[in-house]
Design a protein around this nucleic acid. Structure first.
Length: 599
RNA sequence: GCGCCCGUAGCUCAGUUGGAUAGAGCAGCGGACUUCUAAUCCGCAGGUCCCAGGUUCGAAUCCUGGCGGGCGCACCA
């Protein structure tokens, strides 16, 4: 326990021991005071034969101490030998200090896992700092597609991961309800409205409307919106000037589309804390405020941009524009804030939006964007730096494409041909938990193959199945155990008090070592903003468990349930339940339910 | 042309943010089912970590320059 009463993770605890020995050496004058220990790590060695824990302290501090790494390691070793939990210390290679721990350390850690439940791995590393995770933020122009789904899952899992790591997280969705796309959407809704009125509208009115507008968003999903407009407005909007019907139609259609989006998100199990409307920002004058802020700092000017080299647009013409000095903050060129007609580019409200986030208290901001927005990262980061006088920090996770496959063959998709696969269709077909897990099996910046055949397969190379199977197997063991052991003795609390020192087999202790890595993984993955690491961790832990299970197949004395030795059984069941708990803890980050059985 | 991302076993990818002899799965070969679900496991084989320099005790990882692939590039979000 540390001063705050929180339980300190195992590796942190031993890092404290290492730092303590360094301080002792400083007190003795054998090490200069004030050396920076920030780079000192205590972690499991890559090679298990090197021990349970290793520290780089001697190598990192050798140069500032003016000593050879191995000599310094020798001094630290003498100190560490006084720590009871350390059974053996070895200096190896260039100056690693390898430690073997007493078995009791692992037994206690297992008890700790059982007592803590899925909260195991919770950390205070984030120190309660608030962080804003903005994701999806799809234009409200239709149902979500699979690419949005990836962003939704990555953002949601990242938010959960950060929360677990001790950050105070807000999940946010930015509603682009003010741009040209929404206007086009309103036109399409108006067309559906005219259609819905049927005989009340002369056919040539509809033909004329279609003839005058280059209509997008012709999908069926706007039909109900047209009907709703017809119900609410009758024929009132027919024949009116665009400016008269547009605001009303736009409001209704955006509302309907956001309902659609929310429905898709809820099918995926994603919930937001906050929806911010672009239109609201505009109406509140926040865009003007933001630009005024930049102007005060001399970051806005009227200038002429060079055409992009190598690829000059057909209709390129040199003209003066209102520009933001993005180059002062690391961008490649200054960026336009206004279009040639004087209206804002999408960039201006976006700047205002990020300023708004900052003013709401978020210094740390993470945006999850689609692949097509990769080119806007630098300018947005530049804008954040400018708007916050360098205090704000924006990280952008760009999600690469999702390839939909079926048995290795691409699923052909065409909006025109109506064979476009939506997110909700995919969820209907394989279930939300499968979608969520698979979306997290790759780094966000690599394309991801989503193979319908593979993700539902019950084989080793389907990570969803493999991880869930480990959990289900563990739960199956517990069910069997209940036949010979009283259920009261099988609760996690009861198992935590079992004679855990009966766990002596190396594979058993290895499994606890694997479980003890979970808190470290949470911290490093959260720090790196990389939720996919959890998927690999879970896969590894599941593999360890499946291996242990099969040892019981080869050697009956290693089975979890031994009717001839109930205390040993209890200890092993504690191990099994602990493993299931850690799996459940990881799946919780992903928003995936652990299953009790596979059938 | 410029910017961003990627390049690791035949294939798909990890790699604990600079650590020790670079790891998994699939595919290939050889083994383990009177079971707590063998839907799994064990073993073998498989590598110029794209190339060339640099930084240092130490580089797949950081820097520079190339090569190859993807995406983006005023007035769409």
């Amino acid at each position: 326990m540390d001063a705050s009463g929180e339980t300190m993770s195992l590796f942190k605890r031993f890092r404290e021991e290492v730092l303590g020995s360094i301080q002792a050496l400083q007190a003795e004058g054998r090490l200069p005071a004030g050396v920076d220990t920030a780079r000192v790590t205590v972690e499991p060695p890559r090679e298990a034969s090197h021990g349970d824990m290793t520290t780089n302290a001697a190598m990192v501090l050798a140069s500032p101490a003016g000593m050879k790494p191995r000599d310094l390691a020798g001094l630290i070793k003498i100190r560490l030998e006084e720590v009871g939990a350390i059974r053996e210390i070895e200096i190896a290679g260039p100056g690693f200090i390898n430690m073997r721990l007493d078995g009791s350390v692992w037994h206690e850690e297992l008890a700790e896992i059982l007592r803590t439940g899925t909260a195991y791995g919770d950390s205070d590393g984030g120190k309660g700092e608030v962080v804003n995770v903005e994701f999806v933020s799809a234009n409200p122009t239709g149902p979500l597609h699979v690419g949005h789904g990836r962003g939704a899952v990555v953002g949601d899992a990242l938010a959960s991961l950060l929360a677990k790591a001790g950050y105070k997280v807000s999940r946010e969705y930015y509603v682009n309800d003010a741009g040209a796309q929404v206007e086009k959407l309103a036109y399409a809704a108006y067309w559906r409205y005219l259609e819905a009125l049927g005989d009340d509208v002369a056919p040539d009115v509809i033909d004329g409307f279609l003839h005058d507008t280059d209509l997008e968003y012709r999908g069926d999903y706007l039909v109900p919106v047209g009907e709703r407009l017809a119900r609410e407005h009758g024929t009132d909007l027919v024949g009116q000037a665009v400016d008269d019907w547009l605001p009303a139609v736009r409001a209704v259609v955006v509302d309907a589309m956001m309902d659609l989006v929310r429905e898709d998100l809820s099918a995926l199990g994603v919930e937001f804390d906050c929806f911010t409307s672009e239109r609201q920002l505009v109406d509140d004058g926040k865009v003007d405020d933001a630009l005024a802020f930049l102007e005060e700092r001399g970051l806005v000017y009227t200038g002429v941009l060079d055409p992009p080299k190598g690829k000059v647009p057909e209709d390129w013409e040199s003209r003066p524009q209102t520009l933001f000095r993005a180059t002062e903050f690391g961008d490649d060129v200054d960026r336009p804030l206004k279009k040639s007609d004087g209206s804002w580019t999408y960039f201006s409200p976006d700047i205002a939006y990020h300023r708004d986030k900052f003013e709401r208290g978020f210094k740390l901001m993470i945006n999850v964007w689609g692949a097509d927005h990769g080119g806007y990262v630098k300018r947005m980061q530049a804008a954040v730096k400018a708007m916050t006088d360098g205090e704000g920090d924006l990280d952008v996770k760009v999600c690469r494409l999702v390839n939909l496959l079926d048995g290795g063959k691409p699923v052909k998709m065409s909006k025109r041909a109506g064979t476009f696969v939506t997110l909700s269709e995919v969820i209907d077909q394989v279930g939300k938990d499968v979608v969520r897990f698979i979306m997290l099996t790759r780094t966000n910046d690599k394309t991801l193959d989503f193979d319908f055949a593979k993700v539902t397969e019950k084989t080793r190379d389907n990570p969803v199945f493999y991880v869930q199977y480990a959990h289900a197997r563990a739960r199956s063991v517990m069910r069997h155990a209940a036949e010979i052991i009283s259920p009261a003795d099988l609760t996690p609390e009861a198992l935590a008090t079992a004679t855990l020192d009966r766990l002596t087999d190396s594979a058993e202790l290895d499994l606890i070592r694997g479980m003890a890595n979970w808190p470290r993984l949470v911290e490093t993955a959260a720090e790196a903003h990389e939720p996919h690491r959890v998927a690999y961790y879970l896969n590894d832990l599941a593999a360890q468990f499946h291996a242990l299970w099969n040892k019981g197949n080869d050697d009956a004395s290693l089975r979890f349930i031994r009717e001839d030795d109930l205390p040993l059984s209890a200890a092993r069941l504690a191990l099994v339940q602990g493993m299931a708990t850690v799996i459940a803890s990881g799946l919780k980050v992903f928003g995936v339910m652990p299953v009790e059985e596979m059938r």
